[in-house]
Design a protein around this nucleic acid. Structure first.
Lengths: 128, 128
DNA sequence: CTACGTGCAAAGGTTTTGCAACATT
DNA sequence: AATGTTGCAAAACCTTTGCACGTAG
């Protein structure tokens, strides 16, 4: 396989340095363009699709109208500021006990869950 | 105000009879067309937008790439079958205790949350 | 006449794909 | 030559809006 994959490599690097979480494709695109000088949206999209298929990253949907992606790691939840859209991680899983309850209530075999809290981040709460 | 609003009236009725939950606009559109003979997608969309603004229904996003809507009632969670997409309600809120924990961990003022469980419904689990 | 619901068409935004060009093995 | 990455363009999908028509008040 060909070696040079500057766009894909840069996208992978951005995830792996973990300076930031819950990337949108636009955010990745902007950042990769800053790093490489230029890059096409579709190339970033394909890089993300490939990394997702490989299991390096997970797709998350916070109900914003577009997807976000983050390095696959320990399961955690997210909280999004209703005012500015900032996303933070909730560094624990608050639902580990709930799956059995949900399963007995609905009959579904629970395999996964995703939680998005909404609220106000410190800055926006202070402003309000 | 003019009385006849067949599309809007039918959309409202579909929500209020509560025979079904978590309607997508396409599902509403198909059902309204069956009831009335014809109806335009945008009319259904506007009816849903109006009902949402009036507070009769809530918009929910289950990460499917399109919105769903349901009658506003007691807060509850959802579980979606990973195989067939069927959506059921989890008739309790499993997170009422978690908000304080999340708030102390992230500093966000928690105002809301939405949870989507994934798994397999009875039929799909039986087939697998 | 005025107000409003509807249908039709089109725009807007995000996601996805087809294809040709290009570089590396 | 063969494979795989990229750029460009366009399609696909869902959401949203502009506008004209028709109807009830």
């Amino acid at each position: 396989m060909p070696r040079p994959s500057p766009v894909t490599d840069e996208v992978r690097r951005l995830f792996e340095i973990q300076e930031r979480h819950a990337w949108s494709i636009d955010e990745l695109h902007d950042t990769v363009r800053s790093s490489l000088g230029s890059a096409d949206y579709s190339s970033v999209f394909r890089a993300v699709s490939m990394l997702e298929k490989q299991g390096l990253i997970d797709r998350i949907d916070l109900g914003e109208g577009h997807a976000r992606f983050e390095l696959r790691d320990d399961h955690h939840e997210h909280i999004r500021c209703d005012s500015c859209g900032r996303v933070a991680e909730v560094p624990v899983c608050v639902l580990d006990d709930a799956a059995a309850q949900v399963q007995s209530l609905t009959g579904y075999r629970v395999l996964s869950h995703q939680v998005v809290f909404g609220g106000l981040c410190r800055e926006c709460a202070a402003r309000a």
